[in-house]
């Protein structure tokens, strides 16, 4: 059974930075949203948490493409993550969560699990 999901509005088009990422807070924790205007689709959303350091930094990495695949490079230890699948190009056993993302008028929405409680340390 597919878990229940909902499309959470996280920010507006004005918040996006072309060719780069921003971070938003969702019910599912921190998520990085990337806007690559020269690609189709142009919006990508992956977890903001860098699995190698545990820190919330992925939105602040440099974006680009490797062999055609859209990627972001972790600003800490420089591994590349596919924006499409979340898989780490240097170590395919590691992957970060990806989120379906859509543009609804002026709103950017992410598909997240409904009613999921995420415990958050203060």
């Amino acid at each position: 059974m597919k878990p229940r999901t909902r499309w959470e509005a996280v920010c507006t088009v004005e918040d996006l930075v072309p060719e780069s990422g921003i971070a938003v807070w969702t019910e599912d924790g921190p998520v990085a949203v990337f806007y690559l205007p020269h690609r189709l689709p142009a919006l990508f959303a992956i977890s903001h948490t860098d699995p190698f350091s545990g820190s919330n930094v992925l939105a602040r990495g440099i974006t680009g493409d490797l062999k055609g695949e859209p990627v972001v490079a972790s600003p800490l230890y420089k591994q590349h993550f596919s924006l499409g699948t979340g898989v780490c190009l240097e170590d395919d056993t590691v992957r970060v969560k990806t989120y379906p993302v859509l543009l609804d008028g002026n709103q950017i929405r992410l598909e997240v699990r409904a009613n999921q409680r995420q415990s958050v340390a203060a």
């Binding site: 920010c11 930075v17 921003i22 971070a23 938003v24 807070w25 820190s55 919330n56 958050v120 203060a122």
Partner: peptide, 15 residues
């Protein structure tokens, strides 16, 4: 550019 989470100014980074 210096907003930690653009939609949640008072949210601090939990890690």
């Amino acid at each position: 550019r210096f907003r930690e989470f653009v939609n949640a100014p008072s949210q601090s980074d939990p890690v």
